[in-house]
Amino acid sequence: MHDLYIFITGPLAWAAFILFIGGSLYRLLAMLILVNRKERFIFSYMSLRYGLRSILHWITPFATVNMRRHPVLTVVTFLFHICLIVTPIFLLSHVILWDESWNLSWWSLPDGLADFMTIIVIAGAIFFLIRRIVSPEVQFVTSASDYIILAIVAAPFVTGFLAYHQWFAYEFFMVLHILTGEMMLVAIPFTRLSHMIYSPFTRAYMGSEFGGVRHAKDW
């Protein structure tokens, strides 16, 4: 157990964070280099003002027509993504680990709230899964990879939830939690979870084209 713990919270965690941060930077840089090489015109159309205008509309709940058309999905999507990002960063246990390793400490969520937010992420993942299976227009464009990335995202939350409550085999789920968390980090730059990296750029570009060239809204 100790060797395993030391390995997965030591070298493996280092590897996961290096791949996550390095991979994300690599993907970002590769994109910019490719733009510079083949589609340099994009730079001349990018507009800070219209890019931000578009991003702001699309990160504000119900600020776009399509969000208002799907109120349930909008609520689920926002809660899911907010909880997905906020919970692991501000979870007390995680903050303690940062503190122990790096002497870095920040505000943390009360465990009860973090627990609730974890349930939201899990419920959101189940909602997306059902939507993927039940909605014909989503099913039609679904491939195995869609289920896999959903599972990659849900796994650290499910295992974290079980470990926190110490139901079933605590140590097993604790180890699994650490492993799946690391897996998710690594998956972000190398799967379509990379929408986390790319979406601000695709959004800003479309916003710039709509705002700067087409003088129209894109929401």
């Binding site: 994109m31 910019l32 490719l34 733009v35 090489r37 083949k38 589609e39 994009i42 989503v138 464009v141 679904t142 491939s143 869609d146 379509r192 990379s194 929408h195 790319y198 979406s199 750029f201 695709t202 570009y205």
Partner: peptide, 13 residues
Amino acid sequence: GARLKAYVDTCIH
């Protein structure tokens, strides 16, 4: 180039 790649890699289906 980057546009098509980003569009294909970003689309969450």
